[in-house]
Amino acid sequence: MAVNALKDYSFAPADSQDKFHGNQLLYVGWDEHLMFCAPFAYCLPPDTRFGDLCQKFMAHSFGYHPEWKQVDFSKVTWLKSGQPFVPDMDKTLAELGLGHKDVLRFRTPGLTGIAGTCS
């Protein structure tokens, strides 16, 4: 619905991709691991390899968790906007069709967080 206003009401989005200096936003959340209070926001070049996302950027963010070392990426399942997503570790974000402000969730079967409480 249009905004009720006294004059024409039309604005550019504040966060379009062109404002991120060649990078794109990508959000990643680890299901059943709420020790990390919210999904993380990454600002990465579209040619970032998915393997680097996992092993470099996500490892940096999620590495504090005692279960991170047990994460086996060959068994991890992914959701993109809630739908199943199968990445290829050697392909880039762009090649995998991951666009600006896409959101990924990953699940690690068998790992249930601190004391099994999804923390």
Partner: peptide, 14 residues
Amino acid sequence: TQICYRESEYKGEK
């Protein structure tokens, strides 16, 4: 135990 994610699209932007 599940973060609540909701998504909308407007003029091609998520």
